[in-house]
Computed example of a mutant assay.
Amino acid sequence: MEDQELLAVVELGGYPNFIPLYQRLNFKVEMVNSVRKAQSWLKKHRPQVVVAEFYSDPQFRDRMSNLESLLATLQRYDIEAGVVVLIDAKYLQRLEEVKSRYAVHGVLTFPVDEQAMQTALESI
């Protein structure tokens, strides 16, 4: 079976390295450290799964989070990836606003453990 692609967008980190888990689940992993790099990669790839962090910054002028640009890119290229969002619980309300416009498969709040991630990925 050909490996499925998984795009991991790690901008802040502070949680376990899930690459070994992704590989055990037969994903070919691409890890980038910014939404901009993810957008560039998505021009040529159609991942089955995208794992990305959510954070909000008052300096964002035209959006409320880093995630919106990534989700808009998936929509623009008609990529039907399962999106798993890693988030600090204090941002959950803001994520609900984003979810009203974009599809999100799973939401994992920090601290994220390997079993929760595996369960989210297996349900896609």
Rank of each mutant, 00 (worst) to 15 (best):
Y102F: 15
T73R: 12
K44F: 12
Y91K: 03
H45L: 01
L25R: 04
A103Y: 08
Q4V: 02
V98S: 05
V112I: 12
F18L: 13
L42P: 05
M64N: 15
V29A: 07
Y91F: 11
L12D: 15
A89S: 13
Y77A: 12
V85R: 11
E68M: 10
S40K: 12
R76T: 12
M1N: 04
A120Y: 10
P111M: 05
N17Y: 03
E68K: 08
S123T: 12
L25H: 11
E68H: 05
E11D: 01
R76M: 12
E96L: 12
V32Y: 05
F18K: 02
Y22M: 04
E97G: 14
D62P: 04
N33C: 06
S34C: 06
K99Q: 13
L92D: 11
R101G: 02
L21F: 09
E122Q: 13
M1E: 04
E122N: 10
V112D: 14
Y91L: 03
T109R: 06
D3N: 10
M117K: 06
M64P: 01
R46Y: 09
F54W: 06
T73C: 01
V9A: 01
F110P: 00
A52M: 10
S65Q: 08
A81K: 06
Y91V: 02
S40E: 15
D3E: 09
V35E: 01
D3V: 07
D88C: 10
E68Y: 03
P111W: 05
A81F: 15
T73Q: 08
Q23M: 10
R63H: 07
Q4E: 06
K37G: 00
K37M: 10
Q93A: 05
S123V: 08
V104A: 06
L7T: 09
E80N: 11
A89F: 02
K99P: 04
H105P: 02
A81P: 04
H105Y: 01
S34I: 03
Y15I: 11
Y102K: 02
S100A: 08
V29R: 01
K43Q: 15
Y102G: 04
S65G: 09
L7Q: 08
P47H: 07
E96K: 14
S100H: 09
Q115T: 11
E97Y: 13
Q4A: 13
S34W: 04
E30F: 12
L74R: 06
V83D: 08
T73I: 03
E97V: 13
V98M: 07
E53C: 00
